[in-house]
Design a protein around this nucleic acid. Structure first.
Lengths: 143, 143
DNA sequence: ATCGGTGCAAACAATTTGCATTAGA
DNA sequence: TCTAATGCAAATTGTTTGCACCGAT
């Protein structure tokens, strides 16, 4: 388990209730498989802290990203979605019906890496794979 | 080669110089491997048509997408980038230095499809793969 | 002559920034 | 106390929309 408090302070950043809460919201969402937009994070934290501002959401997310603790994912709806950072070899399975995002671990991303590395001169730094479609549950009962 | 004029008219749409030019800009960009933003398309077409409006770029791109002639790609800089439509089994190799985007055809995407289809209930509709890194040329001479 | 398409300006939505104030360390 | 972090409001940026006029069919 990551200790944000320590992680922040060791880099000279302060631990504020806002930052703590954004982090906890991300953690909770992670458990539910949610990939929240800044606005959604704002709403959830606002339930606890009054006068909490969206700008702080963005500032915090930027900071967490720099520290390698959070990641932004582009799901194709124009806005960014955020999640706890994880190994970059995960595929995002995005259900267009219930909006859920599932992570699928696999050798696929590393295969892409080695494939490109072998045949081509392209130096891979980051692989983004987003698969759009219908999750098992939504595919099961059509409508 | 696709005949946009015919393609448009057969669906009841009109062929306007603006639409024609947007299409030609996309074609030219395709040859150079460029994935243009709406703003860039606007600039290029404006060189030929005076008073050409950005709104028309968006409207035209939306139309071309509906007709299956163009596609939007998310490269991670917040705005959309456009290209001629192509088979959806292409990987985008995005160079963070020179901004070029290369297409890499391969069995990888179809492998993702069949893999997910076999092991999981996820119904794949669209696979977006964007690899960020350095293209061969940029990797060659560092700086 | 129609009615779809365009330019223009205003509306929107997501994200960023400047600045005075607050509160971690 | 000192200065980073916040709230707030205004500014940016990318994209969309309403409407009167224009032009492809």
């Amino acid at each position: 388990m990551i200790d944000v408090a320590h992680r922040l302070r060791s880099q000279g950043y302060r631990l504020t209730p806002q930052r703590q809460l954004v982090w906890e919201v991300l953690r909770a969402a992670h458990a539910e498989g949610d990939h929240l937009s800044a606005e959604e994070i704002h709403e959830r934290v606002s339930a606890t802290v009054a006068d909490f501002n969206v700008a702080s959401v963005y500032r915090t997310l930027t900071l967490l990203t720099e520290l390698g603790l959070a990641t932004e994912v582009q799901l194709g709806d124009g806005r960014g979605h955020w999640e706890l950072a994880h190994a970059d070899d995960a595929i995002h399975l995005h259900c267009r019906r219930c909006r859920s995002v599932d992570h699928h671990q696999g050798e696929l991303v590393s295969r892409i890496r080695s494939h490109l590395h072998g045949d081509h001169g392209f130096v891979v730094e980051d692989v983004d794979v987003v698969v759009h479609g219908l999750c098992e549950a939504c595919a099961a009962h059509p409508e």
